[in-house]
Each structure stands twice: as C-alpha cells, then as structure tokens.
C-alpha cells in the first residue's frame, strides 16, 4: 500500500542497494553452511584432514548403519542428542514459567514505569554471556555464595554439590535466555484487550477459567515464538554445560566441540552440527507458520 504511492523507480537503485549484502551473505553465510553439509558426507582423513570421497559412515555412526569395519555405531550420540533436547525443553519450560507472570505484571504498569522495566529486561541481553555465566559459577561453587550462606547459618555442615549437575546447566541456560522468552510473550500480552478479560469475568467465569479460555489462547503465538527462540540456542549450547556441567553433563554441542578441537574428525563433527541445523530449520518453518497465522488472525479481528 505504501509502496504503490511511490513513483516507479529505476530497477538499478534497489539492485545496487541489495546486491552487496546479498553477495556477502551468499558467500559468507550460505557458502559455509553448504561446505559444512558437504563435509558431513566426506571421509575423514588419517591426519585430521578430509578425503574427497562420498562417505555415509559419519551419519552411520549416529543412526546405526555403520559397518563396524571403519566406523562403529554407538548409541551415545543419539542419547546425547535426546538429552540435549530434554534439557532444552526444560529450559523452555522454566523460562516460560518465570517470564509469563512477569510479562503480565509489567503490561499492567503505568507507561513510564513500564518502559523503565522493559529497558531493564533488555539490558542483560547485551551483557556478555560469559560474564553472566561466570556469576553462576560464583554462586553455585562449593565455596560459592549459596554454600557460604547456608554454612554460616548452620543449616549444612558440608558444602552442597551443586556444580556439575543438570540442575546447574538448566539454571545457567534459563538465566542467559530469559530475555528471549520475555520479549515475544510481552508483545502478545500487551496486545491483549483488557475488555475481553472483563467480559469473561462479567459473564461469571472464574479467574482460572478466564486464564485458560481467554488469556492463554490469545497469547499462545507469543508463547510459541518464545519457546522456539529459546529452544534453538539451548539445543546446541556447549558453553553452559562446559562450565556448569563439566564432564558429567555433556550435551551435543560438547560432542561437536570435541570433534573439532580435540578428536580432529571434522566430517563427523559436521554431521553432528547438521543435526542441530536441521532441527533449527524445522522449528523455523513452524515459527513462520505461527507468525503468519497470528498476523492473519489479528487482521481479521480489525475488520
């Protein structure tokens, strides 16, 4: 609508504006991804390099068709992937439980306080991830804040072992991905018309019923967006399990890191990375679906 009012420009202008960026991303984004996928189908060389022959054994090691001659199938890879999915799902659940009430609270605040709160929530996103994780190292360590506090209160006599547990990894991921969940939920709650909630209450619905029948369905697109945006970086994370999980809680990201930095089996590492990429692309498709449907729904409402 806006565009149609503009005089029809020469085709050269948009081309000149668009082509450097397109070229850059085709070469340095699409190119590397294509090479990575290619690598996952090549044979690992003896000294860490790669042989340019087709080789399906990298995926065979993961999914079970490895012949046992050169490569061996090991269920540990699929198990680790499943564990990563589980930890990422728990992270989605905890961020959702923490953010939903908070977003509801902030959306009801007077506008000035609200914008200050929004600013305070966006800010940690820009604080280095490593600094934010380091804080939890100080808190959870055997000589950390929680143990010092509990011991000085006399509640425990020996420090609790909180580091190197799945709980620690979940706390770390929840903490760093909180803003990712908050912003889409807040956006959908803010759009929620207060009159609908009042109408539901006037018609005699209990608060619980109002929540499940009116509020939750209307904010569901925000919840789904947030869930996907938190799930994707959690799934492939290796910094959090590396620092807070140690050798006890390994995720698929740690396996990939090992293949590249220590085992030097790049094709196998590329195959593992491709699994994360495939999961991400699949979720992105759902995300686009949800987005376009919610835009369509809100347009329908307006008419």
């Amino acid at each position: 609508m806006i565009k149609s009012n503009l005089p029809r420009p020469r085709w050269l202008q948009p081309l000149m504006l668009l082509s450097p960026t397109t070229l850059f991303l085709l070469v340095f984004f699409c190119g590397p991804l294509a090479i990575m996928v290619t690598y996952s189908l090549l044979e690992p060389g003896i000294y860490g390099g790669v042989e340019w022959t087709f080789y399906d054994q990298n995926y065979g090691r993961i999914f079970g068709w490895a012949d046992g001659l050169y490569e061996e199938f090991d269920p540990i890879y699929l198990e680790t992937f499943a564990k990563s999915v589980r930890l990422a799902l728990i992270t989605v659940a905890t961020t959702l439980l923490i953010c939903y009430p908070a977003a509801f609270w902030i959306s009801r605040l007077p506008s000035r306080t609200r914008s200050i709160c929004m600013f305070l929530i966006t800010l940690p996103f820009f604080v280095s991830m490593i600094v934010r994780l380091y804080a939890w190292l100080l808190i959870l360590r055997p000589t950390g804040v929680i143990n010092q506090l509990l011991m000085s209160l006399g509640l425990i006599s020996e420090p609790l072992e909180m580091m190197y547990t799945e709980g620690a990894v979940i706390v770390g991921m929840t903490y760093i991905f909180l803003p990712f969940m908050f912003l889409p939920i807040y956006a959908s709650i803010e759009k929620l018309p207060g009159s609908l909630i009042e109408a539901s209450q006037d018609l005699g619905a209990s608060p619980v019923r109002t929540f499940f029948r009116v509020i939750l369905p209307l904010t569901l697109p925000g919840v789904i967006s947030g869930a996907i945006i938190v799930f994707i970086p959690s799934l492939g994370n290796f910094i959090v399990p590396g620092l807070l999980g140690g050798a006890k809680v390994m995720m698929v990201g740690n396996l990939i890191e090992q293949q590249f930095l220590y085992a030097r089996n790049w094709p196998f590492g590329a195959a593992l990375s491709f699994m994360i990429m495939a999961a991400m692309l699949f979720l992105l498709l759902i995300y686009v679906r949800v987005q376009s449907r919610s835009i369509g729904a809100s347009r329908g409402e307006g008419v």
């Binding site: 699409c30 990575m36 991400m280």
Partner: peptide, 27 residues
Amino acid sequence: FYRALMMTPMMMPDIVLGIALLIFFVS
C-alpha cells in the same frame, strides 16, 4: 527470499555458524 536471507543468520545456532565458518575458511 531476501527477507529470509537477511533474517536466518540471526536464528542460526552459533555453534553451527561457527563451525561452518571454520570449515569454510580453512578449506
């Protein structure tokens, strides 16, 4: 297509992008 091309890099898990770039530069 252009819109998707501009948005996808942000959504790509950083470990995947990091490894893809590593393989690309080395090869």
